[in-house]
Design a protein around this nucleic acid. Structure first.
Lengths: 163, 163
DNA sequence: TATTGTTATACTCTATAACTATA
DNA sequence: TATAGTTATAGAGTATAACAATA
């Protein structure tokens, strides 16, 4: 059985991933913010998608996703094509330029990671990817929806200071 | 041998951790921002530390760390005590209130994670923690220092658009 | 002069809320 | 009336740069 200390440690280590991401992000081109990469990746994997789907897949608010998409469209990495079934929405599609950018980013990521991970057996890299994927999957049902969050615990617990 | 596709996938999954962290963060008390937690955890593990050390351990800029420490001090979670060896700096120490807060956070993290991870064998949780820890360790040498970043690749590569 | 911190400023990412257009 | 998306606004996190105090 997983103990509280183990969960807490997991939370700590997950938090620490932020620093790793910031470091990796330094290898991105100037006009491609980190948030844009996730967008393009998802589009490549999923294929054409509506904004709402994208927002769901990214676990990011629709309004935020909308901004990022606009940015990507302005750069020519994503195209908005009419949705034949619903004129309120448009289908988002990765352009050849977007695919080319992703390929380039793949190379940069490799440059960034291979140095530090040179000693890692391939097996460990694969395992880490697998576990992270499963983690998101296990927690995915829990998006910022009312009633779903991690038990807000109406802030009045022992360690709170009300002074 | 680890392939480029595997590194790219790792980068993708690491990026996705952000969503998980935002979700976990929803269980924090109102006056305790996520960034504060890392600070307190490090102080608990490392014991008394100077700001520079803390900044190093967190892989966060000194100026940012300074702000967070101030916040924690104002809440009574961290105390600044004189450094007998160097009057320019002060030693930072976790207070009992800070330790109590950490204990409370441990419980909240458990609440947040145990639901989604109920099906996970303990072994997998342990393995994920271990791999993440090792990841930070392997990449730790690469902090935002000049000449250390992941090969900035003077932005002019194939997929860049200069228009 | 070099080092330790602090503070001011700016940029990125995100969420909430108000709004438009279509179903 | 409900839904898809856009835009305005606000808040958190971070980095850079200018500054103060001490070594």
């Amino acid at each position: 059985m997983t103990t509280q200390e183990q969960y807490a440690e997991l939370a700590r280590q997950l938090g620490g991933v932020g620093a790793v991401n910031r470091w990796i992000a330094r290898s991105l081109p100037d006009d491609c913010p980190p948030a844009c990469v996730g967008l393009l990746s998802v589009l490549q994997r999923h294929g054409e998608a509506r904004l709402g789907q994208l927002s769901d897949l990214l676990a990011i608010d629709l309004s935020v996703t909308s901004r990022h998409v606009t940015h990507a469209v302005e750069r020519g990495w994503v195209a908005r094509v009419p949705d034949p079934h619903d004129r309120r929405s448009r289908l988002l599609r990765l352009t050849p330029a977007g695919a080319a950018l992703l390929a380039e980013l793949g190379r940069r990521y490799t440059d960034a990671l291979s140095a530090g991970l040179a000693e890692w057996p391939e097996e460990d890299v694969v395992r880490l990817v697998e576990l992270l994927t499963r983690l998101r999957d296990s927690l995915q049902g829990c998006r910022p929806r009312p009633g779903c969050g991690p038990a807000p615990r109406s802030a009045g617990a022992s360690a709170d200071r009300s002074d």
